Simulated scan of single mutants.
Amino acid sequence: MPKITYIDHAGTARTVEGAVGATVMETALRNNVPGIDAECGGACACATCHVYIDDAWTEAVGPAVDMEQDMLDFATDVRTSSRLCCQIRITPELEGLTVTTPARQG
Protein backbone atom coordinates (compact mmCIF):
# COMPACT_ATOMS: atom_id res chain seq x y z
CA MET A 1 0.00 0.00 0.00
CA PRO A 2 1.46 3.35 -1.01
CA LYS A 3 2.28 5.78 1.77
CA ILE A 4 0.87 9.30 1.56
CA THR A 5 2.13 12.15 3.74
CA TYR A 6 -0.29 14.90 4.75
CA ILE A 7 1.24 18.08 6.14
CA ASP A 8 -1.07 20.50 7.90
CA HIS A 9 -0.73 24.28 7.66
CA ALA A 10 1.31 24.30 10.90
CA GLY A 11 3.85 21.85 9.45
CA THR A 12 2.80 18.68 11.28
CA ALA A 13 3.24 15.66 9.03
CA ARG A 14 1.19 12.46 9.16
CA THR A 15 2.10 9.52 6.95
CA VAL A 16 -0.53 6.87 6.31
CA GLU A 17 -0.99 3.93 3.97
CA GLY A 18 -3.53 4.25 1.20
CA ALA A 19 -5.15 1.50 -0.83
CA VAL A 20 -4.52 1.49 -4.55
CA GLY A 21 -7.70 2.76 -6.21
CA ALA A 22 -8.84 4.81 -3.21
CA THR A 23 -8.62 8.58 -3.37
CA VAL A 24 -6.26 10.73 -1.36
CA MET A 25 -9.39 12.21 0.28
CA GLU A 26 -10.84 8.81 1.26
CA THR A 27 -7.48 7.83 2.72
CA ALA A 28 -7.35 11.02 4.78
CA LEU A 29 -10.84 10.45 6.16
CA ARG A 30 -10.16 6.78 7.00
CA ASN A 31 -7.07 7.83 8.93
CA ASN A 32 -8.58 10.86 10.70
CA VAL A 33 -6.19 13.29 9.01
CA PRO A 34 -7.19 16.80 10.10
CA GLY A 35 -7.72 19.55 7.53
CA ILE A 36 -9.69 17.49 5.01
CA ASP A 37 -13.39 18.25 5.51
CA ALA A 38 -14.77 16.50 2.39
CA GLU A 39 -18.29 17.86 2.83
CA CYS A 40 -19.54 16.48 -0.50
CA GLY A 41 -18.11 13.03 0.13
CA GLY A 42 -15.89 13.06 -2.93
CA ALA A 43 -18.41 14.10 -5.59
CA CYS A 44 -16.31 17.07 -6.74
CA ALA A 45 -19.17 19.35 -5.71
CA CYS A 46 -17.29 21.51 -3.18
CA ALA A 47 -13.73 22.51 -2.38
CA THR A 48 -13.38 21.20 1.17
CA CYS A 49 -10.70 18.65 0.32
CA HIS A 50 -8.36 21.25 -1.16
CA VAL A 51 -4.67 20.40 -0.89
CA TYR A 52 -1.38 21.61 -2.31
CA ILE A 53 0.63 19.06 -4.24
CA ASP A 54 4.35 19.05 -3.55
CA ASP A 55 6.17 20.22 -6.70
CA ALA A 56 8.01 16.91 -7.03
CA TRP A 57 4.64 15.15 -7.50
CA THR A 58 2.92 17.48 -9.99
CA GLU A 59 3.61 15.33 -13.04
CA ALA A 60 2.80 12.01 -11.35
CA VAL A 61 -0.53 13.30 -10.03
CA GLY A 62 -1.46 14.93 -13.33
CA PRO A 63 -3.47 18.05 -14.04
CA ALA A 64 -6.91 18.91 -12.71
CA VAL A 65 -9.80 18.39 -15.12
CA ASP A 66 -12.17 21.27 -15.96
CA MET A 67 -14.80 20.32 -13.35
CA GLU A 68 -12.16 20.24 -10.62
CA GLN A 69 -10.77 23.60 -11.77
CA ASP A 70 -14.30 25.04 -11.53
CA MET A 71 -14.67 23.79 -7.94
CA LEU A 72 -11.29 25.23 -6.97
CA ASP A 73 -12.86 28.65 -7.57
CA PHE A 74 -14.60 28.09 -4.21
CA ALA A 75 -11.39 27.20 -2.34
CA THR A 76 -9.39 29.54 -0.14
CA ASP A 77 -5.80 30.50 -1.05
CA VAL A 78 -5.69 28.68 -4.39
CA ARG A 79 -2.22 28.21 -5.86
CA THR A 80 -0.84 26.61 -9.00
CA SER A 81 -0.25 23.45 -6.94
CA SER A 82 -3.88 23.29 -5.73
CA ARG A 83 -5.92 20.14 -6.25
CA LEU A 84 -9.02 18.55 -4.78
CA CYS A 85 -7.78 15.33 -3.21
CA CYS A 86 -11.11 13.60 -3.96
CA GLN A 87 -9.97 13.64 -7.58
CA ILE A 88 -6.58 12.00 -7.01
CA ARG A 89 -6.67 8.19 -7.19
CA ILE A 90 -3.86 6.38 -5.46
CA THR A 91 -1.65 4.29 -7.71
CA PRO A 92 1.55 2.41 -6.86
CA GLU A 93 3.43 5.28 -8.55
CA LEU A 94 2.18 7.68 -5.87
CA GLU A 95 4.20 5.94 -3.14
CA GLY A 96 5.57 8.79 -1.02
CA LEU A 97 3.15 11.47 -2.28
CA THR A 98 3.17 14.58 -0.10
CA VAL A 99 0.25 16.99 0.11
CA THR A 100 -0.26 20.02 2.33
CA THR A 101 -3.60 21.26 3.61
CA PRO A 102 -4.43 24.98 3.61
CA ALA A 103 -5.00 26.91 6.84
CA ARG A 104 -8.75 26.53 6.30
CA GLN A 105 -11.02 24.83 3.81
CA GLY A 106 -13.16 26.95 1.49
Rank of each mutant, 00 (worst) to 15 (best):
M1N: 10
M1H: 10
K3R: 13
K3H: 09
K3F: 07
I4L: 11
I4T: 07
I4Y: 08
I4R: 00
T5A: 01
I7F: 09
D8Q: 07
D8Y: 04
H9S: 14
A10W: 07
G11Y: 08
T12C: 04
T12M: 06
A13N: 11
A13G: 11
R14F: 14
T15V: 10
T15L: 09
V16T: 09
G18A: 11
G18W: 01
G18N: 06
A19L: 14
V20A: 09
G21P: 00
G21T: 07
A22F: 12
A22D: 15
T23W: 05
V24G: 00
V24W: 00
V24D: 00
V24S: 00
E26M: 06
L29A: 05
R30Q: 15
N31C: 08
N31K: 05
N32W: 06
P34N: 07
G35W: 00
I36R: 00
D37L: 15
D37R: 13
D37F: 10
A38W: 07
E39N: 11
G41I: 10
G41K: 13
G42W: 03
G42E: 03
G42Q: 01
C46K: 02
A47F: 03
T48L: 03
T48Y: 02
H50L: 10
H50P: 01
H50K: 08
V51N: 04
Y52L: 13
Y52S: 08
I53V: 15
I53L: 15
I53Q: 00
D55G: 09
A56Q: 12
A56M: 08
W57Q: 02
W57T: 04
W57I: 09
T58I: 15
E59K: 15
E59Q: 15
A60F: 04
A60E: 09
G62T: 11
P63R: 13
P63N: 15
D66P: 10
Q69T: 13
M71Y: 01
M71C: 07
M71V: 05
M71P: 00
L72V: 02
L72S: 01
L72N: 00
D73K: 12
F74E: 08
A75G: 06
D77L: 09
V78E: 06
V78W: 03
V78F: 03
R79M: 11
T80W: 09
S81N: 15
R83S: 01
C85Q: 05
C85S: 15
Q87E: 14
Q87P: 05
I88W: 01
I88F: 04
R89M: 10
I90F: 11
E93L: 11
L94Q: 06
G96I: 04
L97N: 03
T98R: 15
V99N: 02
T101V: 04
P102W: 04
P102L: 04
A103G: 10
R104F: 12
R104T: 15
Q105H: 09
Q105D: 06
G106W: 03
G106R: 02
G106D: 02
G106Y: 05
G106A: 07
